[in-house]
Structure formats: structure tokens, C-alpha cells
Amino acid sequence: MTALLTEQGRDVTRRGPAAPRPSRRGRFARRRERPGLWFALPAAALLAIFFAYPLAVSLLQSFFSTSGGTTTFVGFAQYARLFADPLVGQSLLNAGLILVVQVPLMIGLAVGLAYLLNQAWLRFKGGFRLMTFLPAITTLVAYAVVFRVMLATDGGAINQLLGLLGAAPVDWLNNEWWARVALIGAITWRWTGYNMVIILAGLQAIPAELYEAARIDGAGRWQTFRHIVVPQLRPVLIFTTVTSTIGALQLFDENFVLTGGGPNNATLTPVLYLYKVGFQQFDSGYASAIAWMLVALTAVISFVQFRLMREKS
């Protein structure tokens, strides 16, 4: 039964709770957000044109095959072709070798250098930091060309130095294993300083009270590093490891300039193979399938690394 109420001399029927009226502050906040949306629109449009649209087109293109100017829908045939292509397996093997050897080596060097540069007794820290970080600001092609000249079999600076030490010259870029060593060395030289700066920032964010408490408890340098520094650096190490893994899987510039993927495909990586398939063989459908295979592989490896290295609750 409906209850009748009298309010200011009028009968009002209570039909239920009244809908809340928007406050003036809420309307004002929404009004203030509109210019921000307009300012973000150009960036969103550029993102859609140069990222989202090519991404969607490449995915669609991976289901088609072009031959003789005729494009045919082939479904998942391009992805099935990946499992039968020996060069795909070779490129993944090379990328896996670089990932297993180069990434831990580089992260270990970066942690060691960052820990050294974080010591209070070290003088000229600014100069050492600059020297360590300088390789990170050189262009990829330029430093790869320099390494190619230095590693030349005849007249290269590295072989000249080995000759002064009484060692025989090494055919760095024409031997399968030495080419891999040269490539790993070049990448490590280029990116160690970059990761060192990130890790150094993480070290400087560790509270000094933790070091003082460890010193009072009688912890040595190794115990302090193991039980304080490493746990506090876990988020930074996760970030540097995941980004370095992605970089190793997407390696292109260094091996393209140094070896061109040789000798005997010893330094062929998935992105370099994608380039050869797409821009030398003009097989855009298969190149798109390689690209999406690499995207899936990178996502899976990054997720596994994050799960293994995440901080335990």
C-alpha cells in the first residue's frame, strides 16, 4: 500500500528512493577532462595509424599467400610451414644461444659495475658512469660497423693485438663459433652500460638503514649483497632481464651488419630471417607468420621469466 506524505502542504506519493543527482563537482570534473581527451586524440590517431593498423594488417596477411600477383586465402598453412622450415629452427636456435649466454653475462656485468659505482669510497664516479654508459648512446649501425672493422681477419685491431701477444689471428666473422662469440661480445659491449644505469638507480633507492642493520648484525659483504641487495633489486632485475630477453629475440642490426646472418646461418636470427623473407623474397604472408610466431614466443618467455623471478609473497 502506497504511503502518502505531506510536504509543505502538498501530497507526495513515495514511489521508492530517488535517483541521485550528479553533483556539481562531478560535472565540473568531466568538463575539465574533455580538453585532455582532445589533446590525446592526435597521439591516439598516430598510434592507430602506425601501430594498430599495421598490426592488424600483418595478422590478416599471415592467412594469405601471394603468387604471380594473385592473393589466395590459405588459412593456417603459413603457420604450418614454420614447423617444416629448417631456417626457422636454425634462427630460433641461434637466438636461444644468444639468450642463454649473452643475457646472463650482460646482467651479471651490469650488476657488478653498478654495485662498484655505488660504493662510497670510489672516486671519479661521474667519469666512470659516463664511460660505462657511452656505448648505449652510439647508433646501432655505427658501432656494428666499427666492430666489423676491428674484427677483420687481416689488419683488424683485435688480431693485431693478438699478434703482439704472440697468438695466431682469429677468423672472427667467417667461422661459425667465433662469429657467435663476436656477436655476443658486441651486444654485451653495447647494452651493459644501459642496464647498469637502471640497476644503479635501483641500488641507490635501497634505504641506508638496511645496510646499517646488516652491519650491526655482523653480516659480511657477501651476506649483505645476497640477503639485502638482491631481494631489493628483484623488480629492477625482472625489468632488465625481460627487456634484454626481448632485445635478444629481436636482434637484427648487429648481425645484419657484422655477418649478414652467416657464416652458414650461424648468426641468423628470426628478425633477420623475417627481413630476408619479406624484403628479399617478397613473401609477405610468410614473413607475417614469422613475425607473429616471434610475438607469441616473446610473450611466453617474458611471462615465464616474470613468474620465475617475481617476488614471493
Results as ranks from 00 to 15, higher is better:
183 L>Y: 04
53 Y>C: 14
201 A>T: 04
197 V>N: 12
204 Q>P: 01
256 F>C: 02
239 F>S: 01
133 F>T: 00
287 A>E: 02
173 L>E: 07
70 T>E: 14
50 F>K: 04
308 L>D: 03
155 G>E: 06
57 V>N: 11
245 T>F: 09
8 Q>T: 13
1 M>V: 13
221 R>V: 13
67 S>A: 14
225 F>H: 08
149 V>K: 15
180 R>P: 00
43 A>P: 07
2 T>Y: 14
85 D>I: 12
306 F>G: 12
65 S>C: 06
229 V>T: 15
193 G>P: 01
36 G>H: 10
285 G>C: 05
236 V>Y: 01
224 T>E: 09
288 S>W: 00
218 G>Y: 08
106 M>I: 05
53 Y>S: 12
107 I>D: 08
245 T>M: 15
150 M>I: 02
310 R>Y: 09
206 I>S: 05
252 F>T: 07
298 T>F: 08
163 G>K: 04
188 T>P: 03
260 G>Q: 05
118 N>Y: 05
208 A>G: 10
260 G>S: 06
233 L>A: 02
40 A>M: 05
47 L>T: 11
155 G>H: 10
79 Y>V: 03
186 A>Y: 01
146 V>L: 09
165 L>G: 12
12 V>G: 03
29 A>L: 15
61 Q>A: 10
87 L>I: 04
53 Y>T: 13
178 W>H: 12
51 F>W: 10
162 L>R: 11
278 G>S: 11
284 S>P: 05
103 V>T: 08
50 F>T: 02
193 G>E: 07
268 L>E: 06
48 A>M: 06
142 A>R: 03
41 L>M: 10
107 I>P: 02
80 A>E: 14
184 I>P: 02
41 L>R: 03
257 V>E: 01
190 R>L: 08
195 N>W: 09
169 P>K: 06
206 I>Q: 06
19 A>Q: 09
106 M>S: 15
19 A>E: 10
251 L>S: 02
287 A>I: 08
202 G>P: 02
313 S>L: 12
241 T>K: 15
202 G>H: 06
79 Y>H: 09
176 E>R: 11
81 R>Q: 15
121 W>F: 13
206 I>V: 11
82 L>N: 07
39 F>H: 09
58 S>T: 15
231 P>Y: 04
165 L>S: 10
293 M>P: 00
114 A>H: 07
271 V>T: 09
291 A>L: 09
105 L>A: 14
68 G>H: 04
87 L>V: 04
56 A>V: 15
265 N>H: 08
222 W>G: 06
285 G>I: 01
287 A>V: 06
227 H>Q: 05
157 A>K: 02
283 D>L: 12
244 S>Q: 03
163 G>R: 07
289 A>E: 00
156 G>F: 00
287 A>M: 02
271 V>F: 07
25 R>A: 15
129 R>D: 01
40 A>I: 00
50 F>C: 01
142 A>L: 10
247 G>L: 06
287 A>K: 02
199 I>F: 07
84 A>H: 13
183 L>V: 05
117 L>V: 03
218 G>W: 09
113 L>E: 00
146 V>Y: 04
284 S>V: 08
167 A>R: 14
92 L>V: 00
51 F>Q: 15
266 A>D: 07
134 L>E: 05
84 A>L: 15
160 Q>M: 15
113 L>M: 12
276 K>Y: 11
130 L>V: 10
40 A>R: 04
182 A>R: 00
220 G>A: 09
162 L>C: 12
134 L>M: 13
222 W>Q: 05
